[in-house]
Write a protein that binds this DNA or RNA. Structure first.
Lengths: 198, 198
DNA sequence: GTTGGCATGTAATTGGTTACATGATTGG
DNA sequence: CCAATCATGTAACCAATTACATGCCAAC
């Protein structure tokens, strides 16, 4: 069974193009300038990825002559590309999914609202929470059993990992809350985030 | 200038071999069974990595005939390998380091105590804290400025990232505390990464 | 006498990194 | 005119994934 164009970078691009059609250069800028900076960015990654996606008919590019500047190719999602993005976002979330970091799941959630609508968010968060409970339980068990066999710094590193997942757990509650509140989230000057620590 | 064998996986292996010499199979088991499961694991990753490290003289393997079973190669750190590991662990920590995830920094900390001793831990944590303060400030600034321009789920994903770093900040305090406390927890049999768990 | 765990590897493919190449337009 | 920025790409290299290959030994 062969799957095509399944790198996280590929999906990240699909998600961006779902928001609005863009040129490769714009995609690069988003990765470079926004908080998505953890994803690759360099031309040697983006342009080949775009060509792959195009070869698989997930996106289609067309040339546009601009007033000034070199001409550029604007890429937009195809129907199959949209379908693939939608399916990826709703993939089941298991504890094993989390083993290699929660980054991919968070990326899927980031795109969720605009791709599937507000209604799906609560279910997603609830599934995420379940997987997190499962996974943290395993980590805590491991931590408990091995604490005395490892150097303090190694154990502390493990504890940090657990705390990270615990903070995600709390976050799922906070996020569900946000969706339950009446949809007036146009910001007052007061920030919901606590600076001093939480 | 060309750098050799600098993948995180390579350093993870160096760190393990610092604890005790091991065969490739044992290394694989550690990655598969302990909380280091986020690192690769499969033979197609481990064995080539070992050969690379050996080619660069960072480790040396020698055959050992065991009672029963196929014979295996036990790898141990060389002097240059140890030096390289030590240097990597104490690399400066900047906010940019954190941009692509804190996993590498945490791995360095996990090895820190047994490689450099307890005394270095406080400085490391203090430097880490500084970098975290810097980085979270940038993320919060970004969040504040873009909140209204993004869908709620995207903003929440960003907030989750910030919370993650904030939890690391709190953890640095906790960890420093642990080192300040009288060393009730030392001792135990000499290192060893446990099995079991998972 | 075959299954399953120990133990080591290779091959094909894919994807990302770094660094370079190209060319056009805008501003000093 | 020169540098910077927009905009797109290529080439060499490297590392990781998946899947397969091999062979030995113990237990059932």
């Amino acid at each position: 069974m062969k799957r095509s164009a399944d790198s996280v970078l590929g999906y990240a691009i699909l998600g961006l193009l779902h928001q609005k059609p863009m040129s490769g250069y714009e995609v690069r800028k988003v990765f470079a300038e926004t908080a998505m900076g953890n994803y690759s960015s360099s031309p040697g990654a983006i342009y080949p990825a775009l060509r792959r996606l195009e070869a698989n008919k997930l996106i289609a590019g067309k040339d546009e002559s601009t007033t000034g500047g070199r001409e550029r190719r604007i890429f937009r999602l195809s129907a199959t590309g949209t379908a693939k993005l939608k399916k990826w976002i709703l993939l089941p979330i298991s504890a094993e999914t989390l083993g290699s970091g929660a980054g991919e799941v968070m990326l899927r959630f980031a795109f969720l609202e605009q791709v599937h609508g507000r209604e799906k968010c609560d279910t997603f968060l609830s599934d995420f929470r379940t997987a997190l409970l499962d996974y943290t339980a395993k980590l805590e068990e491991f931590s408990r059993q091995n604490r005395e066999r490892m150097p303090l710094s190694a154990w502390l590193a493990l504890e940090q990992g657990i705390r990270g997942y615990q903070s995600m757990l709390e976050w799922t509650e906070y996020a569900r809350q946000q969706y339950r509140e009446p949809a007036t989230r146009i910001a007052g000057p007061r920030s919901h985030i606590s600076k001093g620590g939480r």
